[in-house]
Simulated scan of single mutants.
Amino acid sequence: MSRHNDRSLLNRRGFAGALIGVTAAAALPCIGSVAAAPAKTMRVYKSPTCGCCARWVGYVRADGWKVKVVNLQDVTPIKKQVGLLPQLASCHTAIADGYVVEGHVPLPAIEKLMAERPDVHGIAVPGMPQDSPGMGGGGIQDVFAFTRDGRTRLYTRVAG
């Protein structure tokens, strides 16, 4: 190979390397935004007269969540629409980043769900435990995970 061809090849390799470096550097901000945590937003379906639901919404908002409240006279159709198992039902149903969050779920369980992104349909604290967030708070809650096909398991046990 002649000297001219050697330089030409090196210049092309240098240019290709520089182009790859610039392209990769330009892509980094995009990669960062894709890997960023989901926004802390949720939609809550509840009765307009339910005080414990309103207190749970306040509890979640106090942690920085943006909550869109949808007041309904009957939340049962929403529970059916989102595929909630009847044995996991509570007084309100929330949707957060594609997950169902049923009932008086403590924030540490919601944060764990958002961080881990498990292959479940949602999490729930069934019923209305008196020591759960929105009902009085401070107690230890069993939070169950559930799948679309009806499997349930204990997801976490946390204070609320």
Rank of each mutant, 00 (worst) to 15 (best):
L84A: 06
D63M: 02
V143E: 00
G58R: 02
V101G: 09
P118F: 02
K66Y: 03
P108Q: 04
E102I: 00
A89M: 14
D63F: 14
G127S: 07
V100D: 05
G137R: 10
G83N: 09
A62Y: 05
A124W: 05
I110K: 04
P133A: 08
T147Y: 05
K79C: 06
P129T: 01
K79H: 04
N71F: 07
V70L: 12
L85D: 13
L107Y: 01
A89F: 12
R55N: 15
Q141W: 03
G98D: 00
G134K: 10
L113F: 09
V75L: 00
H121P: 02
P86I: 02
N71H: 13
R55W: 02
V120H: 07
R117W: 11
L72T: 13
F146Q: 03
I110C: 01
V75Q: 02
R55M: 10
S132I: 03
V60N: 09
G83V: 05
W65K: 08
P129C: 04
V57L: 09
Y99E: 01
P118R: 07
R148Y: 08
S90L: 06
W65Y: 15
Q130T: 15
G83Q: 10
G64F: 13
G103R: 08
V75I: 15
Y99M: 10
I123N: 06
Q73K: 15
P126N: 04
F146A: 05
D119Y: 03
L113A: 06
Q141G: 00
R55D: 15
H92T: 04
Y99Q: 07
Y59C: 08
A115M: 11
H121M: 13
E111A: 13
S132Y: 00
G64I: 12
D142V: 07
A96W: 00
R151I: 06
V70W: 11
N71A: 14
A145F: 06
P118N: 03
W56F: 09
P106K: 01
A96H: 01
A54C: 01
K68F: 09
G134F: 11
G127C: 09
N71C: 06
V69T: 15
D63A: 15
A124R: 04
S90G: 14
L107H: 04
F144Y: 15
Q130H: 11
V120G: 07
A54H: 14
A96T: 08
T76A: 15
R61T: 07
L88V: 12
T93K: 09
R151W: 01
G136D: 10
G58A: 15
D74Q: 10
G150W: 05
A89H: 13
Y59E: 07
W56Y: 15
T147F: 05
A124P: 03
Q141E: 13
L88P: 08
C91F: 02
V120T: 08
M128L: 11
A54W: 04
K66D: 14
G127R: 00
M128N: 01
I140E: 14
L72Y: 09
